[in-house]
Design a binder for these strands. Structure first.
Lengths: 245, 245
DNA sequence: GTACGGAAGATTGTCAACAATCCGGTCATT
DNA sequence: AATGACCGGATTGTTGACAATCTTCCGTAC
């Protein structure tokens, strides 16, 4: 057997780690929207062979975090405000659906996991460990929505979550928003414990908006009717609330 | 400039075409679930370089049609009945949502597109042109749900549609189901014309079940509590007919 | 007769050099 | 001076060979 360090395979792990590191660069604003991702540069920076870097680009593109154009390389994806709004509409809808069809009460094991994550989350916020905050936030959401009983619903929610990572980076550093997120999580836990589905749905939906607002604010307050509305989108009605809500 | 035939680039187009061809092989049952996809074989069959075939595998995996395992290659994905049911649950939910928030009436242009697709669809069925039937069915659904006003909702619906392609292959050859699909499409069009949202939602949701039932029936009626599930080729080495005779 | 171990073949993963392409600046021409 | 061709550097896409891994088959021991 000889047990060589990491002989050849393990490419899955390496790739994942590479993807995660580039993702962090994007989330924490180290790489900004429309900034180019140059293969050789990342090869050097991460000591990774080029084909791995390229595979990572493919994966990141499919995650919705980068855009690749033929013969022009990869750039950090930038979202239009409309796109971001649509993503958040979907997140609201899917998360509401997930908690609506969730079997309550949740198994003890899940509840304990959530409590543990939430406790660690509070600590991480207190210590300003943003990396950990992000990871635990991730874990909290994935754990909650994985319990919805439909793995595809969970998958879709997670996909949109990931896609909106680059948006939420505007909220990640804001202490006020962090405190609010922590409070929301606590409320969700309470609602889960009380099997109060109505409160659960409300929290699951309302919890997502602050990050969106932070994003729009960071983009110059385009969400407010600024003087000249150029009205470029006459082909997109259908965005008011046809929903029950 | 000399205008060489297809000098170097165009890799996007080539890849897409490759993906489409393998997809067809899967949809039409030419490649069956758990059957291996061998790189060299497909290189030969499609006269494509290996890295393209591999890229196609990556894309197909992300479309949900094949599964890749490290050092073991790609196989046609097989779904458990539970997975299929969950996919269909999601499709029902998302399609209902889409037509619920669709702005009615639809623009004339879209309505005309739909009518044209529907007419061609009927013809294709009459001529038993299954490839065309499949394409047009695709077009019909994509066109309808793209009109929902939220491109992410449309994208999610299309993703699940693609993922369930391998499931619907059981229904593709059945004349009864084809006729029923055609009728359902006609009803959807009528509901769209009349701006009858209730009927539209009903049709959009009910339309998806027959294919699911056909799938379950083809799987030996596992939806019914059969005594001895024969579990035919659970471990199937999947290596016999990797080649076409 | 069955089970374990190892070799050979088949298949996938990795790499580095090469070809094609794009981008920016420079120079000649009008 | 403005415009257009063109050339060089930077970057990405492609290829084929090689290394690692898995699978199968066969021989041997019990």
């Amino acid at each position: 057997m000889a047990r060589r360090a990491r002989p050849h395979g393990e490419q899955g792990g390496e790739l994942e780690s590479l993807v995660a590191r580039v993702k962090h660069l994007i989330i924490f604003g180290r790489l900004k929207p429309r900034e180019r991702l140059i293969e050789d540069e990342l090869c050097l920076q991460f000591q990774a062979p080029r084909h791995l870097v390229r595979a990572a680009f493919v994966k990141l593109e499919h995650l919705g975090l980068v855009t690749r154009r033929p013969n022009k390389g990869a750039i950090v994806r930038d979202f239009s405000v409309e796109e971001v709004e649509e993503i958040y509409e979907m997140r609201a809808m899917l998360q509401a659906e997930a908690v609506s069809r969730m079997a309550l009460p949740l198994p003890d094991e899940i509840m304990q996991q959530l409590a543990a994550i939430h406790a660690a989350y509070g600590e991480a916020i207190a210590r300003q460990d943003l990396g950990l905050v992000c990871t635990l936030n991730n874990d909290f959401h994935r754990t909650i929505f994985a319990a919805c009983g439909n793995r595809y619903l969970a998958k879709l929610i997670e996909a949109l979550w990931t896609e909106s990572l680059a948006v939420r980076c505007y909220a990640i550093g804001d202490p006020v928003l962090l405190a609010r997120a922590q409070r929301d999580h606590a409320r969700m836990l309470a609602a889960l414990r009380k099997c109060d589905r109505k409160a659960l749905v409300r929290e699951a939906v309302e919890h997502i908006w602050p990050a969106l607002h932070a994003y729009k604010r960071a983009h110059g307050g385009w969400d407010e009717p600024i003087a000249a509305a150029p009205a470029p989108e006459r082909l997109r009605p259908a965005r008011r609330s046809t929903r029950r809500g």
